[in-house]
C-alpha cells in the first residue's frame, strides 16, 4: 500500500535547484511522449478494439432494419424531416462521431488510479494529471480509429447509396471543429465523474446513470428532432446534445448560419464549464485525498 505524502513541500523544494527548462518546449515534448506511450499501450488492445467495432455493427444493423420496417409501414413517407437515406446517414455518422469521441475506459482507469493511490506519483512529478489523462484519451482515440477505420469505411461503402456527403467544405470543417469540442466535452465530463472516486468506493453506478441520460439525450438512440418540439427544446438546455447530436446535425446541414454559430459558441461554453468542473472536483478531491493519507 502506497501512502501519499503528508505534504508536497519537498517536491517543490527540489525543483528550485533544477535548472528550469524552457517551459513551453519541454511541456510539449513531455506530453507528446505520453501520447506515444499511450498509443503503444493501446495497440496491445487492438484485438479488443476490433471486436468492439465489429460487435458494435450488429445492433447498428438491427436498428437500420427496424427503421426500414417503419419506413415501409409508412409506405416511404419521411419521418419528421428525415428520408430513409438521411436516417441511415444519421446512424452511420453518429457511429463515426462516437468512435472519434467516446471515452473508452478512461473514466474507470482514472477512478482506479484514485482508489489505488496511483495518483500520488503525479503529485510529485512536474506533470499535470488532467493533461496527462487527456493525452492518454487522445492516444486511445487515435489507436481506436486506426483499428476501426477499415471495418467502418467498408461498412459505410456498403451502404453508400444511403450515405450523404456534407454540403460543402466549410460545413465539413465546422463539423470537425464540433467533433473536437465533442471529444473534449466527453473527456472533461468523464474526468469530473471519475473524481467521485475521492468520495465513494464504487463510481461505476454513477457513471452508468449519467450514461443512460446521455444515451437518450445526446441522440445515440434516435435523432433528437424526431422528438416532440418542446422536449427537443428542453434538451438544448443540457450539455447532452453537444455530446453527439450537434456535430452530426452540422454535418447533415440541419443547422446553418447564425444557428450554427450560436451552437458552436454554446458547445464551447459547455466544454469550458466541464473543464472548470473537472478542475474544481480534482482540487476538492485532492484535499480530501491528502487528508486520508496523512
Amino acid at each position: 500500500m502506497f501512502r501519499p505524502p503528508r505534504h508536497l513541500a519537498p517536491a517543490r523544494f527540489l525543483r528550485i535547484f533544477r535548472p528550469a527548462p524552457r517551459p513551453d518546449q519541454c511541456t510539449m515534448r513531455k506530453y507528446r511522449h505520453v501520447i506515444n506511450v499511450g498509443i503503444q499501450n493501446n495497440l496491445t488492445y487492438r484485438f479488443n478494439f476490433l471486436a468492439r467495432t465489429l460487435f458494435g455493427f450488429i445492433p447498428l444493423i438491427a436498428m437500420l432494419y427496424v427503421w426500414r420496417a417503419i419506413y415501409e409501414s409508412n409506405s416511404g413517407a419521411s419521418v419528421a424531416t428525415y428520408t430513409f437515406a438521411q436516417m441511415v446517414s444519421y446512424y452511420l455518422l453518429s457511429t463515426v462521431v462516437d468512435a472519434l469521441t467516446a471515452v473508452n475506459e478512461d473514466d474507470w482507469q482514472i477512478a482506479a488510479d484514485i482508489k489505488d493511490g496511483n495518483i500520488s506519483q503525479f503529485l510529485l512529478k512536474p506533470i499535470d494529471y488532467l493533461w496527462y489523462r487527456l493525452c492518454l484519451f487522445v492516444s486511445g482515440r487515435v489507436t481506436y480509429m486506426m483499428v476501426a477505420a477499415v471495418p467502418l469505411v467498408i461498412f459505410i461503402l456498403a451502404l453508400r447509396r444511403y450515405f450523404v456527403l456534407p454540403a460543402d467544405w466549410p460545413t465539413f470543417g465546422l463539423f470537425l471543429v464540433s467533433v473536437v469540442m465533442t471529444a473534449l466535452l466527453q473527456f472533461f465530463t468523464s474526468y469530473a465523474m471519475a473524481m467521485l472516486a475521492f468520495w465513494v468506493l464504487e463510481v461505476s453506478t454513477f457513471i452508468f446513470i449519467l450514461f443512460a441520460f446521455e444515451y437518450l439525450a445526446s441522440g445515440h438512440l434516435f435523432p433528437l428532432d424526431i422528438l416532440p418540439a418542446p422536449i427537443e427544446q428542453a434538451l438544448y438546455f443540457t450539455p447532452f446534445p453537444y455530446q453527439l447530436y450537434f456535430p452530426v446535425s452540422v454535418y447533415l446541414g440541419k443547422v446553418t448560419g447564425a444557428e450554427l454559430a450560436k451552437g458552436l459558441i454554446i458547445q464551447a461554453l459547455w466544454v469550458l464549464a466541464a473543464y472548470a468542473l473537472a478542475r474544481f472536483a480534482w482540487n476538492r478531491g485532492i484535499r480530501r485525498y491528502a487528508a486520508v493519507g496523512g
Binding site: V66, N74, L227
Partner: peptide
C-alpha cells in the same frame, strides 16, 4: 425509445 418510434408509425411489420 419505442414510444418515440410509435410517434411516427402505426406499426413495425
Amino acid at each position: 425509445f419505442i414510444n418515440v418510434l410509435y410517434l411516427h408509425t402505426e406499426s413495425i411489420g
